[in-house]
Design a protein around this nucleic acid. Structure first.
Lengths: 215, 215
DNA sequence: TCGTTTAGTTATAACTTCTAACGTAAGCAT
DNA sequence: ATGCTTACGTTAGAAGTTATAACTAAACGA
């Protein structure tokens, strides 16, 4: 948090206001969704009038981008601290699910419907590969049994995304499957596609995880 | 298409205008996303002024709901016709992927970020279980090897969503896994989370499908 | 103490959804 | 064929939204 001691009063105030704006924005997003986020409403809630908010954020897109960045950051930090505490893949999976359920809209801000033309800034994709590195480490810790698949061979030649991680292709594949499979269950659960179906989403998640770790 | 012969000229005109509105709406959605859909812009494109559109749709929500319904309908029809042509689970998977890639925003309109409070009307969830029935049929055709998991036991007691389908729990489980796993890969691909990673999403999809069918 | 920077204000433009009130035209039945 | 009725499309307007411009006031730093 950028040296709180060497901050001028103005800088202190500014960062504090920016933080409060983000808080209100999160409240709005968790209750009404990101598409209904209103800068005007936030400003009025804070007792200032409309355009004043533009002193703190360049506009709606800038604010949302910052929220997306924070969401990525929160996920990476959560997984990293779990990993640092000795969590294996299974525990990472449950950490991920808990993090997602804690605030579904935060998860969906990362993995939900994107705006067609949108490309995330570089620093955000860097946070994403931080997360991927954690997954790769945890995947590498697991013995890679099973025969090499054609996709493993493909990965051997297309591993730039692993960012120099020394894991063998089978481990890269496991990390990718971990990601896609858990996201599959989680995303459908958070979006409410399981509601009314009767079964317990937590058990489906657990079953998916078990199967994932068994092979 | 509700008896085109017994339609009065007014009904004909009305359904034709409604259809054109939907066409324009799809154009907007595929290019700018659902959140940027503007009734006003559609009306102007069609040469009529703003509020005239409300004669045809009660409002933005009503139009979007209709588009969502059409998307569900299109998916169900696509899978059903593939199934009727003798497609097995693997072919259904590729049919699904082709359908999704044909119009990513259409897929995301169903499976993307939902509005927090939103509950789909009954007729839409009915279309969804139509799709599920197709998946269950195709899953049942495959021999269910492998031991029964705890989740299978859970499904034996929570199978209301199968809507009377006589498949054993292992088959229900397979259908669910088919859904969640393919959605996991597909959703991340469509949302652009694989772009820049270097590997071929089609191969990951194929690998996921192979693994899914192998166990 | 004075000058510069920053925060907040109002006004305005250009959008959006959506309601209300009004005219007009087309279809239907007598 | 002539009305009557219904549906369509219009303009006007309210209440929102994002965002810019111009101005005031206050706080900070030299």
């Amino acid at each position: 948090m950028a040296e709180r001691d060497t901050m001028t009063p103005r800088e202190r105030y500014r960062t504090q206001v920016r933080a409060e704006i983000k808080e209100r924005a999160w409240e709005q997003i968790t209750t009404t969704g990101a598409s209904a986020l209103s800068l005007n409403a936030i400003a009025k809630q804070m007792g200032m009038s409309g355009p004043a908010l533009y002193r703190y954020y360049d506009g709606r897109d800038a604010l949302i981008t910052e929220l997306v960045r924070d969401a990525y950051r929160s996920l990476a930090d959560t997984l990293r601290s779990a990993s640092a505490a000795g969590a294996d893949l299974a525990m990472l999976a449950h950490t991920l699910r808990a993090w997602a359920l804690e605030d579904p809209q935060r998860y969906l801000l990362i993995y939900g419907t994107p705006v067609p033309g949108y490309h995330a800034p570089d620093d955000i994709t860097r946070i994403s590969s931080e997360t991927m590195a954690i997954l790769l480490d945890a995947s590498a810790a697991l013995a890679s049994d099973g025969p090499a698949t054609p996709f493993d061979a493909h990965l051997a030649d297309h591993r730039d995304w692993a960012d120099g991680h020394p894991a063998p292709p089978a481990v890269l594949h496991r990390a990718l499957s971990f990601w896609t499979r858990l996201h599959g269950v989680l995303s459908l659960e958070l979006a409410g596609h399981f509601t009314g179906m009767g079964f317990d989403p937590a058990l489906l998640f657990a079953a998916e995880l078990d199967d994932l770790l068994a092979h």
